[in-house]
Amino acid sequence: MIVIKSLNKSYGNKIVLKDINLSFKRGEIVGIVGENGAGKTTLFKCITGLENYQGSIEYDNGIIKNTTGFLPTNPYSLSRITGIEYLQLLVNARKIKTSNLKDKNIFDLPLNQFADTYSNGMMKKLALTGILLQDKEIFILDEPFNGVDIHSNIMIKEVLSKLKELDKIIIISSHIFSTLNETCDLLHYLKNGEIIRSADRSEFEMVEDEMKGSIIGNRIDKLGLK
């Protein structure tokens, strides 16, 4: 279990996360939802240890960093490295002995091509394959459905339910409410760095309506579309 208490984060005078208190259990898929700049990525970076913060993030099974697979919004690539070499780099980094990486290519990616020539969606699938091969306990996936095709979307949903079945801790973010609706057990709505609403499955529709109300309001009317 991961327990976050009184987490605060700011860049200079700009407060990005305000008094976040959350917990993430095993075998549960938790969604973090919020508009751009709400603080989702920063929250993930704090959990993974990529950003410093104030407050505490505790994990009952060792150091979070060493058991976490993190999928960034825009996965990082290295120039002139093929897909297969990218996967090799990720498994080497965790000292994992894996035979024939090509057999693990669940997304049918062109692994012999340079990863820096991949589209955003392909890069996302490559990075996701990489972290799945790292044999982790915690999975933090920032916008895993962004830019991927419909087939991969289905595959990612299946992967998430498999991870849930394996009792992993899974935290995902998305702008696409419908995908979170289908996959998550619990949702936290992050706005301006604060968790303003948490909801279980039975309350998802209500959260969606609240979000629509809060985000859209009467803004479209201001355009005066005819």
Binding site: L78, E85, N92, Q113
Partner: peptide, 17 residues
């Protein structure tokens, strides 16, 4: 986009790239 084979592929990335 032609991938030049290198003897450095086992330990990416600095020398491979």
């Amino acid at each position: 986009n032609f991938v030049i084979p290198t003897p450095f592929y086992k330990f990416p990335f600095e020398f491979t790239s």
